[in-house]
Design a binder for these strands. Structure first.
Lengths: 226, 226
DNA sequence: CAGTGGTCTAGACCACGTA
DNA sequence: ACGTGGTCTAGACCACTGT
């Protein structure tokens, strides 16, 4: 029902449309109409006011990127940008003490490390390192990883593990030597760091990700409602 | 109904609770139960799988801050932190050319400028400048602004204007002279900048905000589902 | 197969703005 | 007084998962 409503409301567009009208127009009961309107409201296409009505939100030109987990390359490419990614390194490694603490691992546990450089027009944009606490038989090679552009998709299809939530920390910092070298900037230049704890649907902490972004030319955009 | 469910599900807690059980336990029909469960799922307290059941998400200790619009001081204070704010400056001003373009203003229109410094334990943490395209009769003084900790609350109570959405851009940069001075850091030190376009419920672009955060000691945290 | 959540019907009453 | 969205009742059928 929601799909029909989206198109239909796009057509007649601006003025408004009450639940009653939609019930009659689509010959359905009130429940699906309400659900559809609820979803449209949640997504920011309309806003609703009790006793007043439902009003379309005007001129939302493009849907903002939002905060996808591990879909940056695909997103940028969808925008028509020349975005590629290159696996710097991937291996099963012993986590550092710090990482053990974050992920609650025992010393001796191994994690899958994936270090990836995302390039925009051949120029380094982001250096992302993911550490995943997953079974040993999930060890994709470089070629596979570069093909899918995100480990998380592979995790879903091969292991049935869905990353459903991320706790993000964003901060600015100065690039250290390694970061500067990979990103092609100078030591101490400002960088934007996003660190994310990754959770599955049942809230199991399954990994951690650290993404270092070039400060110039990169702005991280998203929309927050409410 | 949702409130009862939250407490009730907190009690019996871990195992699970089907819609049917809740219907019987609370002597209500399925609709409100479903709505309540939907909300709990949206907020990340439970996750639901078709034909399997509803499962509580384990150990969500504190609700993450999220991206409140203009509630930072209050939020930090709620955490028990010594957070205060100081109005650096407030006035009706002529927007710069750049700001005119962003807000779609005509030259000659005035905007309300509010420059505020947020301090954590007496030390500068964030410098936030808000520019609001609002009626002339809304001109709160410094005292009022410092009392409420956010212009947005005043906007709601005095003008009935609700800020319901923000388009954020986050990036790292080096502090310029003015920023460095206000934040007590050195010129060129990394800072985290959050620029936000502010929208009302009917999607009218009503203002713009630029917040410059000290890079050290400050991490911007939030949670993204899906 | 029985049980789950996802969707739907066809009603009902309420709180709240607008006129 | 009327129309709006918010909430609720009491049913129904379906797709899917587990046994």
């Amino acid at each position: 029902m929601i799909e029909e409503l989206q198109t239909a409301d796009g057509e007649n567009g601006r003025p408004f449309s009450t639940e009653q009208e939609l019930v009659q127009r689509f010959h359905v009961s009130r429940a699906p109409v309400r659900q559809a309107l609820k979803e449209l409201a949640d997504e920011g296409y309309v806003y609703r006011e009790r006793a007043k009505g439902t009003f379309p939100v005007q001129e939302l030109p493009v849907r903002p990127p939002g905060l996808e987990l591990g879909g940056l390359v695909g997103f940028l490419r969808d925008q028509g940008l020349d975005c590629t990614s290159k696996i710097v390194d991937t291996d099963r490694v012993l986590p550092t003490e710090n990482l053990c603490a974050i992920l609650g691992l025992k010393p001796g546990d191994h994690v899958l490390k994936i270090s990836r450089l995302i390039l925009l027009a051949e120029k380094p944009l982001v250096w992302a390192q993911s550490y995943l606490s997953v079974s040993e038989d999930f060890q994709p090679n470089k070629r596979e990883l570069e093909r899918v552009d995100s480990v998380f998709l592979l995790l879903g299809s091969e292991q049935g593990i869905v990353i459903s939530r991320g706790d993000h920390q964003i901060y600015a910092s100065g690039a250290n030597r390694e970061e500067a070298e990979l990103l092609g900037i100078k030591n101490g230049d400002p960088v934007l760091v996003i660190e994310t704890k990754l959770y599955t649907r049942n809230n199991r902490l399954i990994g951690w990700r650290r993404a270092v972004h070039r400060a110039d030319e990169y702005k991280f955009s998203f929309t927050a409602n409410r």
